[in-house]
Simulated scan of single mutants.
Amino acid sequence: MTLTPFGGRGARRTAMASAALLVGVAGLVGCGADRTAQGQEGGGAGTAPASDGSSSDAENRLPLAGPHWDIWELSVGDSGLKRAPRGAAWVTFDGAGAASGNFGCHEFRAKADIKGDTVAVRDRETLPGPEGAKSCDARQLDYEKDVRQVLDGKLKITTNYSWVNLTDSHGSKLVLHKDRPFPLVGTEWDVTKLSYMDEEWPIHEDAPGIGKVYVVLDADGTFHGNFGCNDYRGKAVIGPKTIEFSQAEPTTDKRCSEAVMDREESVRKRFDQTVGYQLGPDWLLGTTYPYDNLATGFVAGAKGKR
């Protein structure tokens, strides 16, 4: 049975809504008046966290001190929100007057006094780190510059579930997500849905008995995984906006039902093309790049511990 996107496979939806649904399933809770799901250039999509500038519900408030905070997004003045390149920037506050983290390319430490709903960051010291800026491209260096600008001085703290906003007196803001995100490379990404144009469907739909479908991006420029019946291996060149999958070939020769084999071929095609990708704290979306009216894609969730 050849997989087609039409004929009652569920309500049609945009890739943006697909990302929002995935985050809901994954348990990322967020609701904010000034945040909306933001699409990635080239057809990818992501879901934005809560950033409503206030939090009146005490049970939703999180202590700033203690957790690892990923600096997920930021805005400088009225320039609009900017997404971090692959979760490189982060910060922790020890609650005893100190903070440490990474601006995006360089590590840092600073003094940080938390009082009520404010934190004052001062006396910052930049550290070289294991690689410093050697592995950073222009986009990462630009993001680091903005993090440096905002993460300084007195900042107002607002929280909502696993998200925290740090806002300065000029309205510039850091959007933090609790816990370190899953890395793109090395994580087992379980493929839960496939998509075609503006429609998606569960990986198991019309393919009863299909095995777990997953992919792991390896540090040597390859990928491996299972597409529902057989193990696969191929090449994966990762860029700032795209992953160039190629040479996806089976490494086993199992025979499964016709429905499963058809679904496996549909998965293989999605991992034998260039995709624009969107990386979240524990989810990954990929869609044909450049996006066109025949674009195909996948929705995946991270498995395991960070």
Rank of each mutant, 00 (worst) to 15 (best):
G66S: 15
P49N: 05
A48K: 01
W69V: 00
A45V: 11
L64A: 05
G42M: 07
A65R: 08
L62F: 05
S55H: 07
P49K: 03
D57F: 06
D52V: 10
L62V: 15
E59S: 15
G66P: 10
S54H: 11
G39D: 06
W69Q: 00
A58S: 07
G66H: 10
T47P: 04
L64W: 02
S55G: 15
A65V: 06
S51N: 11
D52L: 09
L64I: 13
E41R: 12
A58G: 03
S51F: 10
P63G: 13
D52P: 12
G46D: 09
G42W: 05
W69I: 00
T47W: 09
W69S: 03
D57E: 07
R61S: 14
G43C: 05
N60I: 03
E59Q: 05
A65Q: 11
A48G: 11
P67F: 04
P67N: 01
D52K: 07
S54W: 06
H68P: 01
D57Y: 09
A65P: 04
E59R: 08
G44W: 04
G39M: 07
S55M: 09
L62I: 14
A58L: 12
P63Q: 12
P63K: 12
S51H: 03
G43N: 06
N60E: 10
S56N: 10
A48I: 08
A50Y: 02
A58Y: 02
E41Y: 13
A48P: 00
H68M: 05
D52F: 05
E41L: 14
N60G: 01
G53H: 00
A50F: 01
E59G: 02
P67M: 02
G44V: 06
Q40P: 05
G53M: 00
S56Y: 06
R61T: 12
G42L: 03
S54L: 12
D57K: 04
T47N: 14
Q40C: 12
A45W: 06
T47Y: 09
G66D: 11
L64M: 10
S55P: 02
T47K: 07
N60Q: 10
S54Q: 05
W69Y: 06
A45K: 08
S56A: 11
W69H: 01
G43S: 01
D57A: 11
R61W: 01
E41D: 14
S54N: 11
S54G: 08
S56R: 07
E41K: 08
W69G: 00
L62E: 11
P67W: 01
E41V: 13
G44S: 14
G43V: 05
S55T: 13
E41M: 11
N60W: 00
A58R: 05
S54C: 09
D57R: 07
G46P: 03
P67S: 06
S54K: 08
G42T: 07
G53Q: 04
L62A: 09
N60R: 03
S51W: 04
E59D: 12
S56P: 01
R61F: 02
E59F: 02
G53N: 03
A48T: 15
S55C: 15
